[in-house]
């Protein structure tokens, strides 16, 4: 019941989803669509579980007056405000929408923008050309970065009538060697995903069920 039941359920659902691809049967297709809907509901409930977990974590910090508990008040305040704003007014307008437009979206964009500085410092460490392959990484990275700004259009050489700029080389790198690398990785990952998915459906891979499964 605790270990085998979930694996049997997984097997049945996985086989149904797989079989649907190969059969035009209307009943199977309808159940396939049902499973897609059920998946969304399970995902929604998982998110609620995550939020309950987040609430309990911060609530414990506040009730025990742990260091930084004041910030937990801010987190819980923000969370509850959004939920009640959506309940009292509407998710489409009012304070809920206002908080999204003027608090969440700008802060999220700034968080990602902040990464530019950290990526720059990380690239300084990573891009030190210690060998042939590191030098290639460095060269490709620098060419693509320079090729994406107006300066990249100006730096280059003229061969006959053709002007080969850093922007041209950057596009070529992105279109050919970079695409080859992406494709190679994508095919490898695709084969790996397929193998793992089969292992999950037949119950060989069950670590996702947690300890003791």
């Amino acid at each position: 019941m605790k270990k085998t039941g979930p694996v049997i359920l997984g097997f049945l659902v996985g086989i149904l989803m797989l079989v649907q691809y190969f059969t035009p049967n209307a009943w199977i297709e309808a159940r396939y669509n049902n499973v897609l809907d059920w998946k969304q509901v399970v995902f929604g409930m998982t998110l609620i579980l995550g939020v309950v977990s987040l609430f309990l974590y911060h609530w414990r910090k506040i009730s025990r007056r742990q260091s930084g508990w004041g910030y937990s008040v801010v987190t819980i305040g923000g969370l509850l405000f959004m939920i009640f704003a959506a309940l009292i007014w509407s998710p489409e307008a009012g304070p809920y929408r206002w908080m999204f437009d003027y608090v969440q979206a700008p802060m999220q964009a700034t968080m990602f923008a902040l990464l530019a500085f950290y990526v720059a410092s990380a690239s300084y460490r990573a891009f030190r050309a210690r060998g042939f392959h590191a030098a290639l990484l460095l060269t490709a990275g620098v060419i693509v970065m320079l090729g994406r700004v107006p300066l990249g259009e100006l730096i280059g050489v003229r061969i006959g009538e053709t002007h080969i700029s850093l922007a041209t080389i950057s596009s070529w790198i992105l279109d050919y060697p970079n695409l080859a690398a992406k494709r190679g990785v994508m095919i490898g990952v695709g084969l790996g995903m397929t193998a793992t998915a089969i292992k999950i459906i037949v119950g060989i891979e069950r670590t996702y069920l947690g300890r003791g499964a």
Binding site: G50, Y71, F81, P91, M99
Partner: peptide, 14 residues
Amino acid sequence: EHLLVGVSAGYYVV
């Protein structure tokens, strides 16, 4: 940072 976590969690859960 803490406000962003709370507001984002509230937004996505709704």
